[in-house]
Design a binder for these strands. Structure first.
Lengths: 149, 149
DNA sequence: GAGAAACCCATGATCTCCCATAAAGTGGTG
DNA sequence: CACCACTTTATGGGAGATCATGGGTTTCTC
């Protein structure tokens, strides 16, 4: 499976468009020809998650595993569908971030994209930098010794 | 598994390219024909880690072992993906070091490569030399007798 | 028909790919 | 073991492709 790596920063134009980093577009094209994404507010404050449709299916499978009428199912369905927005890139590889999500992330001009393997994050740059810093700070507490063999 | 030995120093050209030492390239080719690497900032200040993709997969396995929504998982994903950049050598065996990493290491013109077994380090030469010296200085305090079998 | 959204074309900056070359390394041979 | 031919390595540079971005025009919606 293709994966999203690295950090990139692009800028919103006056029409609210922003280029998806080329390396992310390449990763998307790898698994499907339509370059389309699901955007949703992350449980991490200030962060937007962006998922390829194929990877999003993983969550949909989790939903299917829950019983009908289970309150958890209702809650998960809300998260997966009601708060999520499908978006497609234009011919130049740009997306328009829905106003509700742009506000959730406090986007102004700059937009940071952080690879996370099977999906990526969209942040207002300073908030994203703070999140990165916090991640680095907590890492040594559990990253001890060698990786699992 | 391929192994990286020794130290080498090459130079960045005006386009930001630097040759990966030939012996390291040979070690990489040993396990896959595409000469590609994952670069990431080390927890050691000023140091860039370079991993063959196959060795990097072990870290990714460590990530997969953590539960969804676990803050540790979020932090580790940042380190393994958001801060990591896959790079491929050109036909001449050179890589371009991403600006974010070049800055982390304070790279100017010279670039030192230190073998570390399953991965290697990239340093600004004087910082790398200092790290080596510090390593030598502390080694006798714990390196007693025979290596572990 | 007004506003917004989608579509199309344009452009400078950056990046890749390809070819070139000097220096260093390697091996063979007398 | 001295010499030479060939290979590999590290590095330089040019041309074309790609990327991010701007902006105009058509199409859709209500």
């Amino acid at each position: 499976m293709s994966q999203f790596f690295g950090s990139h920063e692009n800028r919103l134009d006056v029409k609210g468009r922003v280029s998806v980093p080329a390396s992310f577009r390449a990763a998307l094209r790898g698994e499907a020809e339509t370059v389309s994404l699901i955007l949703r507010p992350s449980h991490i404050p200030g962060c937007i998650e962006a998922w390829p449709r194929t990877a999003y299916a993983r969550w949909q499978a989790a939903l299917d595993a829950l019983e009908d009428f289970d309150p958890k199912r209702e809650a998960l369905a809300t998260l997966l569908y009601s708060e999520a927005f499908p978006v497609d890139t234009d011919a130049q590889g740009r997306i328009v971030i829905p106003a509700e999500l742009a506000e959730h992330a406090g986007l102004k001009e700059g937009v940071s994209f952080f690879g996370r393997g099977d999906h990526f994050h969209i942040w207002e740059p300073s908030a994203g930098a703070a999140f990165k810093k916090a991640s680095r700070a907590m890492a040594p507490s559990f990253l001890i010794g060698r990786p699992v063999q």
